[in-house]
Design a protein around this nucleic acid. Structure first.
Lengths: 155, 155
DNA sequence: ACGAAATTGTTGACAGCTCATCTACTTCTG
DNA sequence: CAGAAGTAGATGAGCTGTCAACAATTTCGT
């Protein structure tokens, strides 16, 4: 029925493999660092950064989920776990009886303020410093281009 | 004690963000596709491809783990699950009493042979086709450069 | 104003990953 | 060849992510 599958050309496959391996290695290292340095998982870090940087420490549940592009159920579980460890708390929303605010606790602030500078150093050391400014710019542009392309593709 | 943290410059942060978001979106879509198309998780896919493509359907446990750069425990759990679903089987190794071979079953072959062409099409549609050949080449080179850089960095 | 539909968020079951630990075998050293 | 050290792989506990179902509101259409 189908035509022969069109496998990737060697050059295409090489690019794809490098990309995939690079990402895995990079993210693997970064998340081990943030775990070791600050006792935070990568997810904890993302939540706390979003909450404190963009939401001033307090954000509606779904806004937070949308900001980081997570499913609401993932966020809900994550918040439950973080609340248990005292990093964030839930608060009721007066305007909307269904709603909830997520707020960063003082312990949450403390954790992220300790973790962030170290994390940035690692990002710099492992990723930013690997490329010249021009190369980094190109890399970012190409990433964005792929992102835009996917936005136009179905599904 | 520390100097002021050196946050990323806007241009650097933009590149980093595009990269991270692009990868998440891309991998998210691809793994949902392979799950829906063939009932395989991304991990199942990687294991079966490695096994059938590079190992001719049969590989030593740790060789397989090294090939895909997974921890042995991860691979062990993965193989256990896949064995339970009949995609692979374990076989004893005559040369080394501790060892094991992992072999792709006929069902495993069937699954990967159905999944692979569709997967490649999605990779092509979402990723390859987003860039010109030159851009793709550049993107692959830069990825490889980052990978090489990390190889030289401690930890 | 009233029922249908949409929105907000939670929950439980289950698959996946990591870490530490354990067993069994092999190899190395004296 | 005995014992120590290394290697191959399995296992269990515990955290994380996904999916489907659910409850509690709010909003919308008439």
């Amino acid at each position: 029925m189908d035509a022969q599958p069109r496998w990737l050309a060697p050059e295409q496959k090489a690019a794809w493999d490098s990309f995939i391996r690079m990402h895995e290695t990079l993210i693997g290292r970064l998340s081990r660092h943030v775990q070791a340095d600050a006792g935070l998982s990568a997810s904890d870090y993302v939540v706390l950064v979003s909450l404190t940087e963009r939401g001033n420490g307090r954000m509606r549940f779904l806004d937070l989920a949308k900001l980081v592009e997570w499913e609401k159920s993932r966020m809900s579980h994550q918040v439950t776990r973080m609340a248990k460890r005292g990093l964030v708390a839930r608060e009721e929303c007066p305007d909307d009886g269904r709603g909830a605010f997520i707020v960063a606790t003082p312990a949450g602030y403390k954790a992220i303020e300790e973790a962030a500078p170290q994390h940035v150093e690692h990002v710099r050391r492992l990723f930013i410093d690997a490329l010249t400014p021009n190369q980094l710019h190109t890399f970012g542009q190409l990433s964005q281009r792929i992102l835009d392309h996917m936005g136009k593709q179905p599904d």
